[in-house]
C-alpha cells in the first residue's frame, strides 16, 4: 500500500511539471505583453525596459522557465502584474476560501449522491419520477442552479440563507482561513453557524450536478450488485435485503462511484470559478477570472498550478480509496 501511494505521489510530480510547462508556454505564446500590462499603456520606453529587467523577462526563455519553476517549488509565484503585489500573499486568504468551499461541495456531492441513489432504485412510478428529476437537474449548468438558489433562498424566502460573501463578521486575526474551523477553534458557535450558512448555497450549487451523476452510477452499481450471484448467496444464507445492501452491495457498488467522483472533482474545480462569481466568494475562482480579464499571466499560472495540484491529489486519494475498497485492485 505504501509503495502504491509513493508511486502515485511520484507521478504527481511529473504531472505538475508538465502542467507548469504548459502554463508557462501559454503565457509566452499569448498575444499580450506582460511588461505593458505591468507598467501601463502610456509608460515610456525606458520604463518598459526597466520593468522588463525587473520582472526578469530579458533573460533567455529557458532561464525564465527555470526561475519560474524554482520559485513555484518554494511557493513564490512572482508578482501580480495588475496589483504589483506578490501573488503568494494574495492567494494566502483565497486558497483556504476555495478549499473550504470545494470540501463542502464534495461532501454535499456524496450526501446528494447516496441519498438520491437510494430513492433512484425504487421501483414503480416514484422511481420513474425521480429519474426524470435527476436528468433535469444533471443537465442544468451550475450557474443556473446558483442563480435559482439565490432567487429561492435569498429573495423569495426573505434571506433565509445569505447569498454573498463568506461571513457576516470578517476573518479572525492569525486564523487558518477556513472560517468554519476558525469559529470552532475560537469557541464561537455564532461565528461557526454563520460561516456554515454562507457556505450552504454556493456548495449546493457546485454539488448538485456531480451529486446527481454520482447517484446514477451508484444506483446502477447497487442494482447490479443486488442481482449478482453473491447477493443471492447472502440471501440464501438468510440475510435480509437491508443487510445485503449494507454489507455487500454498497461496497461493491462504490468502486465505479469513486472513479466517477475523481472525474467530478475536476469538473467541480471549473464550476467553482463560476459559482464564486455568483456568490461573491473571494476564492481562487474569482481571482482567476479577474486575472484572465487583465491578462495577468503570472497570477493565472499560479492558480492553474494550484488547482491542477489539488485535482491530481484528489485523484490520488480516490485511487487509494479504490484500492482500500476493492481487494482485487490491491492484491493483483
Amino acid at each position: 500500500m505504501l509503495v502504491f501511494v509513493a508511486k502515485r505521489l511520484g507521478s504527481l510530480a511529473v504531472v505538475l511539471f508538465f502542467l507548469t510547462l504548459l502554463v508557462f508556454t501559454l503565457g509566452k505564446v499569448a498575444d499580450s505583453d506582460p511588461v505593458r500590462t505591468y507598467v501601463g499603456v502610456n509608460a515610456s520606453a525606458e520604463a518598459v525596459e526597466a520593468a522588463r529587467e525587473e520582472l526578469g523577462l530579458d533573460n533567455p526563455i529557458p532561464v525564465q522557465f527555470g526561475s519560474f519553476v524554482a520559485g513555484a517549488v518554494q511557493g513564490d509565484f512572482g508578482i501580480s502584474l495588475s496589483s504589483k503585489r506578490p501573488i503568494a500573499d494574495e492567494l494566502s486568504t483565497r486558497l483556504p476560501a476555495t478549499l473550504e468551499l470545494a470540501g463542502w461541495a464534495l461532501a454535499l456531492t456524496v450526501v446528494i449522491g447516496v441519498s438520491l441513489a437510494s430513492l433512484y432504485s425504487r421501483p414503480g412510478r416514484f422511481g420513474a419520477f425521480m429519474r426524470f428529476v435527476f436528468f433535469s437537474a444533471a443537465s442544468a449548468p451550475s450557474f443556473l442552479i446558483a442563480m435559482l438558489s439565490v432567487l429561492v433562498f435569498y429573495k423569495w424566502l426573505d434571506g433565509a440563507l445569505p447569498a454573498a460573501g463568506r461571513s457576516s463578521y470578517g476573518p479572525y486575526e492569525d486564523a487558518t482561513g477556513f472560517y468554519v474551523l476558525d469559529g470552532i477553534l475560537h469557541g464561537s458557535p455564532t461565528y461557526t453557524w454563520d460561516a456554515i450558512q454562507h457556505l450552504l448555497l454556493p456548495a449546493l450549487a457546485a454539488a448538485v450536478g456531480s451529486g446527481v451523476a454520482l447517484a446514477r452510477v451508484l444506483a446502477d452499481g447497487i442494482s447490479s450488485s443486488l442481482g449478482s450471484p453473491w447477493a443471492r448467496t447472502a440471501r440464501a444464507l438468510g440475510e435480509r435485503e437491508g443487510t445485503v445492501l449494507r454489507r455487500h452491495a454498497l461496497r461493491n457498488a462504490s468502486s465505479p462511484a469513486l472513479s466517477l467522483l475523481a472525474v467530478q472533482a475536476g469538473f467541480m474545480v471549473s464550476s467553482l470559478v463560476v459559482v464564486e462569481q455568483v456568490f461573491s466568494w473571494n476564492g481562487l475562482g474569482s481571482y482567476l477570472s479577474g486575472a484572465i480579464g487583465v491578462g495577468d499571466f503570472p497570477a493565472i499560472a499560479a492558480v492553474c498550478l494550484i488547482l491542477g495540484a489539488v485535482y491530481v491529489i484528489l485523484n490520488t486519494l480516490v485511487d487509494v480509496a479504490l484500492a482500500a475498497v476493492d481487494p482485487r485492485v490491491r492484491l493483483s
Binding site: P229, W230, R232, A236
Partner: peptide, 25 residues
C-alpha cells in the same frame, strides 16, 4: 421464509467464481 431461509435451508450454487462477495475475506 425469512425464518426458514439461512437457518433450516441453505444452498450451494453453480458458479463458484461469482457466488462469493469479492470484497470480503
Amino acid at each position: 421464509w425469512a425464518q426458514v431461509r439461512g437457518r433450516d435451508v441453505t444452498s450451494v450454487f453453480q458458479d463458484p467464481m461469482r457466488s462469493l462477495d469479492p470484497t470480503m475475506t
